[in-house]
Amino acid sequence: MLRVDCHPDVDDPASHWYAPGVLDELRGMNREGRLELSVHDYFDDDALWDYLIGLDVSVLPYRFRHPLRVAGGVLRPRHHRPRASCGFYAQQRPCLTYGHDRQGLDADSLRDAVHTAYEERPVRRADPVERGAERFRIARAHEALYAGLL
């Protein structure tokens, strides 16, 4: 079942992210049984990890977020133009990508990425030991950079 998670600010007229038409459409699809809609506040760390562990694949529809790891993979927007946005997820970790930039969503590439995730079940999870060593190297690099700037 497709699950769509939204934050309450999508339903708040005072919010920059207010999108009543989108939420109304999602609620209609939820009533029809086409998806499961969940409107909730941000998860705390424990709830977020519990949530992510239960996913087969996560589609990140926004350009400005940190990478996530889930069992079946993560679909992230790719960037056709260097100045279009930031993130460069695919350069950080192997992942499936789809087109979503300032010109809009490339629905065909999203459909293809979801099919690939379903059919191939790619395992794109880093080795925990490797990730720990990488985090240590990054922390040392930040520490050296900040010390040099002071």
Score class of each variant (00 low, 15 high):
M1H: 10
M1K: 12
L2R: 08
R3C: 11
D5H: 14
V10Q: 06
V10F: 14
V10I: 09
V10A: 14
A14L: 14
S15R: 06
H16E: 11
H16Q: 10
Y18E: 08
Y18D: 11
A19E: 09
G21R: 07
V22C: 12
V22Y: 14
L23C: 13
D24F: 11
E25P: 01
R27E: 03
M29C: 00
M29T: 00
M29G: 00
G33A: 00
R34F: 01
E36W: 05
L37K: 04
L37A: 07
S38Q: 13
S38Y: 09
S38I: 12
H40Q: 13
Y42C: 07
Y42A: 14
L48G: 07
W49C: 11
D50M: 10
D50R: 15
L52K: 10
L52F: 13
I53R: 15
G54I: 06
G54C: 11
L55E: 10
D56I: 02
D56T: 07
V59C: 11
L60Y: 04
R63C: 03
R65H: 14
H66Q: 14
P67R: 12
P67H: 12
R69Q: 13
A71F: 15
G72Y: 08
G73E: 07
G73V: 06
R76V: 15
R76Q: 12
P77C: 04
R81K: 09
C86Y: 10
G87F: 02
Y89L: 04
Q91N: 03
Q91L: 05
P94L: 13
C95R: 04
T97Q: 02
Y98H: 00
Y98Q: 00
G99I: 03
D101P: 01
R102K: 03
L105W: 01
D106R: 01
A107I: 06
A113R: 08
A113L: 01
V114C: 10
H115C: 05
A117S: 03
E120F: 10
R121A: 11
V123G: 13
R124T: 03
R124G: 05
A126L: 13
D127S: 05
V129W: 14
R131S: 11
R131T: 14
A133E: 15
F136M: 10
R137P: 06
R137F: 12
A141S: 14
E143A: 06
A144W: 08
